[in-house]
């Protein structure tokens, strides 16, 4: 472990598929199938990929909200996957998560104040109710909400405001790492940028490290220092955000980038249109998972899974083209 705050090593999450009355396991959904990456302290690591490729599952198994079926996660040098429940609960104050759905992630029966005080109560952070309230007010100010509405319930806030409350809750325990699972995907464009800016400001102010999950490439590119691209439960490419966008190596990344509509009617460009659909992670193709849709597919791709290699300094990819 070098200077990595978070280090994910060959993480696997296979959900059993059960059938019949006896609920026998008939197969596995390989939602995450051997993902490895490091996140340095203070950086933003972006994770992109299409729906169902395992981004959320990766995020949640890092935090052990679901128990990963294989691999290790090191946080600050500690092997998170080996911690006991008690130790795990302690370390949770250092790793937090912000959810995609600003409607589902707040308890509808808690006021904003209760929502923000809950983590303080769980971790015994402040002695008195007055101190907790003061801290809750501070947090609201930090995320740019007025404290006059502390006693309101979540349904009285707009999506963007709820997302701010969710961020404030994550900050309540002074975490080092925040996993943001599509924090802006459910928001309108004009509100999206408010939340992105807020995340950016908070990172500078509190020296936070982010794992930023999204399916929107322009958003990920904007906020991340380094980006990992996932396809069908595997990481296919990882690089500095600029070099990934300027020189994508993996054919999937190239297709993904070229598919993003550019808001400029005068921009003309070559477009790679992929054939076919995303295969099911319950029944992935042989060899390179991407081969049925890949335009550069070679014979070896159909049989052998490509190795994960550093192709240029700091630029990793898993593709036979670079052997």
């Amino acid at each position: 472990m070098t200077d990595a705050l978070l280090s994910v090593n060959d993480l696997k999450m296979h959900f059993p598929i059960r059938k019949g009355i006896l609920r026998r396991t008939v197969g596995y959904v390989r939602a995450v199938d051997g993902v490895s990456f490091d996140v340095k302290a203070g950086e933003t690591f972006g994770l992109v990929g299409e729906s169902g490729c395992g981004k959320t599952t990766t995020g949640r198994s890092i935090l052990r909200l679901i128990e990963p079926s294989g691999g290790q996660v090191f946080f600050n040098g500690k092997n998170v996957t080996k911690l006991s429940n008690v130790e795990m609960r302690k370390i949770r104050s250092e790793m937090q998560i912000v959810f995609q759905d600003p409607y589902g992630s707040l308890n509808p029966r808690y006021t904003v104040q209760q929502t923000l005080e809950e983590p303080m109560i769980i971790h015994n952070l402040y002695k008195s109710a007055a101190e907790r309230k003061k801290r809750a007010m501070e947090l609201l100010e930090v995320v740019g909400l007025s404290t006059s509405r502390m006693n309101r319930y979540p349904h009285e806030f707009s999506g963007g405001q709820r997302q701010r409350i969710g961020i404030a809750r994550a900050l309540a325990v002074n975490p080092k790492l925040i996993i943001a699972d599509e924090p802006v995907s459910a928001l309108d464009v004009s509100v999206q940028s408010q939340v992105l800016n807020l995340l950016d400001d908070l990172q500078k102010e509190f020296h936070l490290t982010y794992v930023f999950i999204a399916h929107d490439l322009s958003v990920v590119k904007h906020i991340s220092n380094r980006v990992g691209v996932m396809y069908l439960g595997k990481m296919v490419e990882l690089a500095e955000s600029d070099s990934l966008y300027e020189k994508p190596l993996h054919p999937y990344t190239q297709a993904l980038l070229s598919a993003v509509p550019i808001p400029n009617p005068e921009a003309k460009r070559e477009r790679i249109i992929l054939q076919g659909d995303l295969p099911s992670p319950a029944n992935p193709p042989s060899g390179c998972y991407f081969h049925p849709r890949c335009q550069s597919c070679m014979d070896i791709c159909k049989t052998t899974a490509p190795e994960w290699k550093e192709i240029e300094p700091g630029h990793f990819a898993a593709c036979h083209l670079y052997n």
Binding site: S158, G160, Q161, V189, S190, V191, Q192, S193, Q194, L196, N197, D200, L217, S218, V219, K221, H222, I223, D242, Y245, L257, V260, I262, P263
Partner: peptide, 18 residues
Amino acid sequence: SIPKLEERQARLPSIPGN
């Protein structure tokens, strides 16, 4: 307020409010 793929922006301009 939409982040651009082709350029790097330090900060996104945004429309305040809802």
